[in-house]
Amino acid sequence: QWIQSKREDIVNQMTEACLNQSLDALLSRDLIMKEDYELVSTKPTRTSKVRQLLDTTDIQGEEFAKVIVQKLKDNKQMGLQ
Rank of each mutant, 00 (worst) to 15 (best):
V67S: 00
D9C: 08
L23M: 09
I68E: 11
I59Y: 08
Q21T: 08
E35W: 10
S48W: 01
D30F: 00
E8L: 05
S41G: 09
I32Q: 09
N75W: 10
Q60Y: 14
G61P: 04
R51Y: 02
S5W: 03
V40N: 06
K73R: 14
L39E: 14
D9R: 05
D30A: 12
L39F: 07
T47S: 13
Q70P: 04
M33V: 12
V50L: 01
E16I: 08
I32N: 00
D55C: 12
Y37P: 04
T56K: 04
N20L: 12
R7T: 02
T45E: 08
N12T: 09
Q13M: 08
I68Q: 05
K43I: 05
S22L: 13
L54W: 00
E38R: 10
Q21R: 09
L23V: 05
V11M: 12
W2G: 05
K34L: 12
A65K: 02
L72E: 09
N12Q: 10
N20T: 09
L19S: 01
L26A: 08
T57C: 15
N12I: 06
C18Y: 01
F64N: 03
V11P: 05
Q13T: 11
S22M: 04
L72P: 05
D58A: 14
E16N: 10
N12C: 13
L53C: 07
I32E: 02
L39Q: 08
E63H: 02
D36T: 10
R46C: 09
Q13A: 14
D36H: 11
E63W: 00
K6F: 15
D30S: 11
F64D: 11
L72T: 06
S48F: 05
K66A: 11
A17H: 13
N20Q: 12
T45Q: 03
R46Y: 01
T15C: 01
T47V: 11
K76N: 10
T42D: 08
R29K: 14
A65E: 06
R7C: 00
L72W: 04
E38I: 14
D55T: 08
W2I: 14
S22T: 15
A17E: 15
K49P: 03
S48R: 06
S22F: 00
T57D: 09
V67E: 09
T56V: 15
S28E: 14
L72I: 01
S22I: 15
P44L: 09
D58S: 14
R51Q: 13
I10T: 02
Q21N: 08
A25H: 10
Q13K: 03
D30P: 00
D74K: 03
L39I: 08
N75H: 13
Q1R: 07
L53E: 05
F64Q: 11
T47C: 10
E62M: 05
L19A: 06
D74G: 08
Q70H: 08
V40L: 02
K34G: 08
A25I: 08
N75R: 03
V67L: 05
L39P: 03
D24W: 01
P44S: 09
A25W: 00
V50P: 05
I68K: 00
E8W: 00
V11R: 05
G61K: 14
L54G: 05
S28H: 10
K71H: 15
V67Q: 04
T47Q: 12
K76E: 11
G61H: 13
M33Q: 15
E62A: 05
E35P: 09
E38M: 12
